[in-house]
């Protein structure tokens, strides 16, 4: 019988124990577990996830462990409501507190969720970042996210021209 806990090794060489239920919320770990059936119980290497971020992911998994799978959710919704599910509003209070962190941490969690393939967490992070992008000017976005303006004057002129053409076209 498979053990109830699984060991994973993070990028900073820490070994963390997590329950099988939480581990299976990650499709990546799940597939690794399936691949290693019958093999020696070794710690699963997660070279792209640090222990700090993994703990955050485990926190989220613990809170949402009883949530229905995202696929089931979609099946229950009709088309119209499925689109509304793309709304970036974060309804869960716990989730709101969860995303209330430094941008660096948010991006790390997003990348970890992408790597570990935890769909719910990935969507949550995407929504949060999308909310951060909304309603801001380009300068504010650059400042908030530390992005350098690498558009040349020629690029901007071309965009301006294209935008003018678009306006005239419509």
């Amino acid at each position: 019988m498979a053990s109830e806990s699984i060991s994973v090794t993070t990028s900073d060489d820490q070994t963390i124990q997590l329950s099988r239920k939480h581990a299976q919320m990650s499709q990546t770990i799940n597939s690794m577990l399936e691949d290693s059936v019958g093999a020696d119980q070794e710690a699963i290497p997660l070279p792209n996830v640090s222990s700090e971020v993994l703990k955050k992911v485990i926190d989220w998994c613990t809170h949402h462990e009883n949530d229905p799978a995202p696929v089931e959710k979609v099946k229950k919704l009709n088309k119209k409501r499925e689109y509304k599910a793309k709304n970036s509003t974060i309804s869960d209070e716990w989730d709101k507190n969860f995303v209330n962190a430094e941008l660096r941490v948010i991006v790390d969690i997003l990348l970890a969720a992408n790597y570990l393939d935890v769909k719910g967490l990935f969507e949550l992070m995407c929504k949060h970042i999308a909310n951060e992008l909304k309603g801001k000017t380009p300068d504010q976005i650059r400042e908030r996210f530390g992005i350098q303006d690498d558009l040349t004057e020629e690029d901007k002129a071309a965009m301006r021209k294209a935008w003018g053409a678009t306006k005239n076209d419509s």
Partner: peptide, 14 residues
């Protein structure tokens, strides 16, 4: 400016 997160290294699909 100092990197305020790794936003500019996010993969395109993300």
């Amino acid at each position: 400016k100092p990197c305020n997160g790794h936003f500019d290294q996010l993969p395109q699909k993300v």
